[in-house]
């Protein structure tokens, strides 16, 4: 976060006018101050707004997708799925305004209520250790997943990805990624083969999945889970994908004995999910864990390729190539668990 600066005044004014239009009130009465700015999400900008006057004064966050960037899910659709999830009891900051007008702050944006707490992984894990709330957060995540997965997917925004056969789609996706590697990686070929040999049936019911719930995409405080963020990856798919992804090792940030995001145990997640009405399937869970681990490995390989061919030259992207072995290791080791 960095403090507000005079340069931000035109954006603050534009956001004030946008909120006044949304709230159908006099724009002169709505005063916005940009209290901080974070680009932690890398692609997106998050502006903390202090709003005075108007019908709903208070602290908000404006999430902006820079114009040049390609949205996975449009900001309008993301706002819709956030609102839908929130209406069904998933902890999500309430969206109060959304626009695809890119002229207001240099990109489509939505404004949501400000939720206090930590998102930066190492700070999250420190706070969780201090207050002993890791298991509680995992329980809350299990409940949130069950609530999300209980929503009728017919209610999802029409533009959201909704493969008819999510298992096949995911398998085909990693197959394409492995075929596109800069050079053959036998470990990935082996894991892909295992995934094909052990593929589960398509899910009995496709559900809305967030697909990126993890330490770093949640807000927590001393009392537990406050909100789930970053819904741009939401799609209709296999609910077990969500439960597998949050257990991937990179989201533990070194707390490797706590499988679920460095926070708690899989048993805790499973019990909470089932208690809240979710249907847990150990075999599918395991299959998805292998798949998402390997998929992230091919994603890291893709980052290295983007550095090498100049699409995104950066020492961080280059270094991703030296992280591929981590995912190859985890995927192979998972096969024996």
């Amino acid at each position: 976060m960095s403090g507000g600066s005079p340069d931000e005044q035109p954006e603050a004014t534009a956001l004030g006018a946008f909120l006044a239009r949304t709230w159908e009130c006099d724009p002169a009465g709505v005063r916005v101050r940009i209290a901080g700015q974070s680009t932690a999400g890398a692609r997106r900008r998050n502006l903390v707004l202090d709003v005075e006057g108007g019908p709903h004064p208070g602290r908000y966050v404006a999430t902006v997708l820079p114009t040049a960037d390609i949205a996975i899910l449009s900001m309008v659709d993301e706002a819709a799925v956030r609102t839908l999830a929130r209406a069904h009891g998933v902890p999500v900051p309430e969206v109060v305004a959304v626009t695809d007008d890119e002229s207001i702050v240099g990109g489509a944006c939505f404004v949501s209520e400000f939720v206090a707490g930590e998102t930066i992984p190492r700070r999250v894990l420190r706070l969780v250790a201090e207050h002993g709330v890791g298991s509680r957060i995992v329980t809350q995540l299990g409940g949130a997943f069950a609530a999300l997965h209980a929503i009728d997917p017919a209610e999802a925004p029409a533009a959201m990805a909704a493969p008819a056969a999510p298992v096949t789609a995911a398998l085909d996706g990693v197959g394409v990624a492995v075929a596109g590697l800069l050079r053959p990686e036998p470990a990935f070929s082996y894991v892909l083969r295992w995934l094909r040999d052990h593929r589960p049936a398509e899910p009995a019911a496709r559900r809305i999945v967030h697909a990126d719930v993890r330490t770093g995409n949640v807000i927590v405080d001393a009392t537990g889970l406050r909100a789930i963020l970053d819904w741009e990856t939401a799609k209709v798919g296999d609910p077990m994908e969500d439960l597998a992804w949050v257990c991937t090792r990179m989201w533990r940030f070194g707390e490797d004995h706590l499988t679920v995001g460095g926070l708690g145990a899989v048993d805790t997640l499973r019990d909470a999910y089932v208690a809240a009405g979710g249907t847990w399937d150990d075999e599918r869970f395991h299959w998805w864990r292998v798949l998402v681990t390997m998929r992230w490995g091919t994603g890291l390989a893709g980052q290295a390729a983007m550095h090498l061919d100049g699409r995104f030259s950066s020492v961080v992207m280059a270094a991703s190539g030296r992280r591929v072995a981590e995912m190859a290791h985890d995927a192979l080791a998972l096969l024996d668990t």
């Binding site: 090792r249 499988t259 899989v266 030296r322 992280r323 290791h329 995927a331 998972l334």
Partner: peptide, 13 residues
């Protein structure tokens, strides 16, 4: 070479 100790850590992969 890339991350010594990564494969020695306890817990499920």
């Amino acid at each position: 070479i890339a991350k010594p100790g990564y494969d020695a850590t306890a817990g499920t992969p």
